[in-house]
Nucleic acid binder design. Structure first.
Length: 283
DNA sequence: GGTTGCTCCTGAATGC
DNA sequence: TGCATTCAGGAGCAAC
């Protein structure tokens, strides 16, 4: 699942092929993803130059000339890959559209950017660049977890009265923007917090201690993505998700990785989603 | 207003 | 073997 580290990894992979390049031809192969594409979508993309490829939470933001920004969300199964030969580093070309290739951007530098999303939970929109922070998908997002606004003081104040399980609180994009199911499980394990515990029943001290853990988990995952990106040239043109080694996620029945714990990773379901955690060391 | 559950979708995994 | 059912999950939204 693309969470913040995966989106950042994709951004770093796409940036060299997109920034400064012109979209010679945009191919839009269906009317919608999760929501309809904007009016005249292909026409409004074609001919635009990508000034900068940024990111807000799990959203990619391709700032175009003409004062519009392409907003992209990968949803659950969305991928954005580079093919073609923009910088002389890719060995294979993939000229034929494959199943679920919904949007293809043919760049003037020879790169082809393909958005493929089997489940179509992804989204794209075009929005005035100066107004992106007010876009309906962006405006309610909480602070960036790797930014200064996500402070210990902010987090404690935000959660100390909330009567919701810690799992749900960390998944709430209004609290902190970018965590998904996988990294919430990893954060709570590292923090030693029972995912079922109500936020307001977690001490201020433990809430505060969670903030640097969020930063660490995400930073390490981005770092791991970067290392897998370096292998990309040998990896047959696939620019997608790195394989991160998770300590608890999807490891039901394995021994708890915490040194000396001796517990067993357990799966429960919270608000319809799997939570992996260790009942022995998460309290 | 806070919280919970429903919903979109397809492919992989499971069940009979 | 093959068909039908279940499940996974991001996040907006309706319904308590």
């Amino acid at each position: 699942m693309p969470e913040l580290p995966e989106v950042e990894t994709v951004r770093r992979g796409l940036a060299p092929a997109m920034e400064g390049a012109v979209i010679d031809l945009a191919q839009v192969n269906r009317p919608d993803l999760r929501w309809p594409f904007p009016e005249q979508f292909a026409d409004r993309l074609t001919g635009r130059r990508v000034l900068r490829l940024g990111r807000r939470s799990k959203y990619l933001l391709a700032e175009l000339d003409g004062d519009e920004t392409l907003i992209v969300h990968l949803g659950m199964s969305g991928r954005m890959t580079v093919s073609g030969d923009p910088l002389g580093q890719f060995h294979h070309d993939h000229p034929m559209p494959e199943k679920h290739d919904h949007v293809v951007l043919n760049m003037g530098n020879g790169a082809r950017i393909t958005f493929n999303d089997p489940r179509r939970f992804g989204a794209m929109d075009l929005w005035p660049s100066a107004e992106v922070e007010r876009h309906w998908l962006i405006r309610n997002l909480g602070p960036e977890p790797l930014g200064n606004a996500f402070s210990e003081g902010y987090f404690v104040e935000r959660l100390k009265t909330r009567n919701t399980p810690m799992k749900a609180a960390l998944l709430d994009q209004r609290v902190v923007a970018g965590l998904g199911n996988i990294y919430v499980c990893e954060v709570l394990h590292r923090a030693g917090i029972d995912p079922r515990r109500t936020a307001r029943r977690v001490s201020d001290r433990r809430l505060a201690a969670t903030v640097p853990i969020v930063r660490d988990v995400l930073s390490e995952a981005i770092e791991a993505g970067g290392s897998s990106l370096r292998d990309y040239r040998r990896a047959d043109g696939e620019l997608g998700y790195f394989q991160h080694v998770f300590r608890v996620y999807d490891r039901e029945g394995h021994p708890c990785p915490r040194e000396g714990c001796g517990g067993t990773v357990t799966r429960i379901v919270q608000s319809g989603r799997s939570t992996f955690w260790c009942p022995a060391c998460q309290r």
